[in-house]
Design a protein around this nucleic acid. Sequence first.
DNA 1: CAGATTATTATGTCTATACATAATATCAAG
DNA 2: CTTGATATTATGTATAGACATAATAATCTG
Lengths: 234, 234
Amino acid sequence: MSDPQFKSWQAIQAEVLRRIHARDWPPGHTIPNEVDLAREFGCARATVNRALQSLADSGLLERRRKAGTRVALHPVGKATLDIPVLRQEIETRSMTYGYRLVERALACAPAALGTDKTALHLIALHYADDVPYVVEDRWINLTSVPAAAEQPFDRISANEWLVITAPYTNGDISFTAEVAGAEQARLLNTDTGAAVFVIDRTTWDHDQTITTVRLTYAPGYRIHTAIGTGMTAK
Amino acid sequence: MSDPQFKSWQAIQAEVLRRIHARDWPPGHTIPNEVDLAREFGCARATVNRALQSLADSGLLERRRKAGTRVALHPVGKATLDIPVLRQEIETRSMTYGYRLVERALACAPAALGTDKTALHLIALHYADDVPYVVEDRWINLTSVPAAAEQPFDRISANEWLVITAPYTNGDISFTAEVAGAEQARLLNTDTGAAVFVIDRTTWDHDQTITTVRLTYAPGYRIHTAIGTGMTAK
DNA sequence: CAGATTATTATGTCTATACATAATATCAAG
DNA sequence: CTTGATATTATGTATAGACATAATAATCTG
C-alpha cells in the first residue's frame, strides 16, 4: 500500500487536502495517525508532521496529543492582512505618494496611550496621485521614544519613521466604519457624512506603549485579501 | 561560545527576537548563517531553521538561498483575522443568537458569481440579543451546490449550512465602509446615512464559484485583533 | 464505586546526516 | 568586455531514531 510518489511535504499536504474535499475524511473525522500515514505515503513521520502541522495552523485540522488529528468541524477561515507602510501601500498600487504634515504639538496624552505624561500629537495627510488618501492621527509616547521629540516629521511621516526606529513586540488593531466628521471631511476633501474606513492601531514594546494611531481612509477605500486553505497557487 | 541553555526552537526564536529589538541586529543586517548559529546555540541546524523559518513567515526576517538571512527593513505587520461563523461570533461575545430569513428567490446571478445560470438569492438577518447584528445578502451557485435548492434556510442560515456542506479551496474577502441604503437601514433598524461596515466574500471550489456574500454590519461594529511578531505571551 | 496511580498512545520536538535547490561568485573562452 | 560554464554557499527539505509531553485508558486502592 506504500505509495512512493508522495515525497515532499507539500505533496502530502495536497493529498490530505484532496481527501478532505473529496469527503474521504469528512468534517469531524479522525484521520490516521502520523506513523500510519508515513507508512502509506512511504516517507518519514517528520514529513507527515510538517504537512499536517501546517494544515493545523491554517485551521483545517485540529490536533491533540494522544487524541489524534481530526478534520475541523467549522473550518475557521483565516485571512492574513498585510499592514504595509502607507507609502508602500500606495506605491504598490502604482500611484505616486505624497505627504503633508498638518499639525504637530505636545499635548496631554489620551487614555489609549497609557501614559499621563505629555505626548507628541501628529496629524498628517497621505496622498495618492495628489488626492487625499488617508488622514493619520497619531500620538507618540515620548517616554518610550524620546528621539521623536527631535523629529520634525515634515518630510518623512511618523508612519515610516517609527517602523525603522521603534520596533514593537506586539500590538492591537481594529477596523470600523464611521461617518466622517467635519475636520476629517475637510482634510480628505470629501463631504461630511461620508462613510469612511477607520483603522485604530496601538503598539507596545513589551509593556511600554509606543504609539497609537487612527487612520481615516478616504471614501471608497477597500481592504482586500485572499483566503485559502494553506494551499498557494501552483 | 557554545551556549547550552537554548534548547528549544522557541527559545532560539526568542533570543533572535531579543537581538533584533536590542539592535544587535538592526534592520537590513545579515545575520549569521544557520550552521554558525547552531554552533553558537549548541543545537542542531534543523532547530535553528525552525526558529528562523517561523520568524520569516511572520515577516520579520527575509531569507534567500545563498544570500542568507536578513532582518527585514520594513517589517510588514501581519494581522490574522479569524472569520468565524456568525453564530459563533455572536455567541463568543456571550450574546444570544437569533436568525430570520428575509427573502429567498431564484434569480439571474450577478457577475461576481461567475455564472450566467439562475442562482439562489438569500437575504437574511442575524440578531445578537434580539438586536439586528448583520444583514447577509448571499448568492449561491446551484451548479456547484445543487443541494442548496432543496434547503429552505428558514431555520439554519446559509452561512452555517455552507461551511458544513460545501467546503472551499480558496476565496477572496474585502472590507469597506459604506453608507447604509434605505433597505439596509430598515433591516438593521438604523438611520439611512449611517456608516456601516461591509464584508464582501466570494469562495471557490477549485475553479467553480460556490457563493458570494455581502455582510452589512450594524453601525458600531468593530473587527479587532492582535498583531505580534510571532511571539505569543509569556 | 470514587479517586488516585500507572500504562499507553499520538503528537511535539531534537539530533545528525544527507542531498536538493537557488542564487551568487569565479573564471575561462570568444 | 561580455558570455557562458562551473564552483561555492546558504537555505530547503528528507530521513531515521530518540526522547518529551499531554491526554486518555486501564488499573489499583480505600
